[in-house]
């Protein structure tokens, strides 16, 4: 299996290193031709507005919607989650709309509010140490979206930060910034099963 990593902007090299560590082949994806040659896709952390604008300018929106919509296993982290989503509160930035959620960007605050914390993840036997950087959370989820992890805000309300819909896995945090490969394994397993 060749795992493509969208390499328009962001920390795509960290994802590629993680994919290779898991024994799969990794390839940078910037063009429709490169997208056509991969079996799975990771959309990395970065700036979602930048990734969205580059994808629009270089004709990547339609091919991405088509491949992901057709069931290609896909992992999005942070900006990747925002880019996959159907909407973002208060923003009209380009989004793929293949994941039936609405996100709130920078939901935890600015960079001084960025944090790391242990997260209980449904299906993992021990907590996952997650890094949240100017992270979004998920405001609304559609009927087909399964919430795998949530985090509680200062007012005690729960907000989803890891969700699955079919073969799409999306995280508000950055598994690529840690040595823990369990989220990447989960994503690659989506391709093996169903």
């Amino acid at each position: 299996m060749i795992v493509g990593v969208l390499a328009l902007q962001g920390d795509f090299r960290e994802h590629m290193a993680m994919v290779r560590r898991l024994g799969a082949e990794a390839a940078e994806v910037r063009t429709p031709a490169e997208l056509a040659s991969v079996d799975a896709l990771i959309i990395p952390g970065g700036e979602s507005t930048t990734i969205g604008r580059l994808a629009t300018a270089w004709g990547m929106m339609a091919p991405l919607r088509e491949r992901i919509g057709a069931g290609m296993p896909t992992l999005g982290t942070c900006a990747g989650l925002i880019f996959l989503a159907a909407g973002a509160v208060g923003s009209d930035q380009p989004q793929l709309g293949v994941l039936d959620v609405v996100v709130a960007r920078n939901a935890f605050g600015r960079q001084v509010d960025s944090f790391e914390a242990d997260l209980e993840v449904h299906g993992l036997d021990r907590p996952y140490h997650a890094v949240f950087i100017r992270a979004p959370w998920i405001d609304k989820t559609g009927a087909d979206v399964e919430v795998l992890a949530s985090i509680r805000d200062a007012e005690g309300r729960e907000h989803p930060v890891l969700v699955r819909q079919g073969r799409i896995l999306a995280a508000a945090f950055h598994p690529e910034l840690t040595d823990d490969d369990r989220i990447h394994r989960l994503a690659l397993d989506l391709g093996e099963g169903s």
Binding site: Q9, G10, G45, G46, V131, I133
Partner: peptide
């Protein structure tokens, strides 16, 4: 967390 934000700016 501090170095992580710079990681997200890469390629930009």
């Amino acid at each position: 967390v501090k170095r992580g934000l710079a990681e997200m700016l890469k390629g930009g």
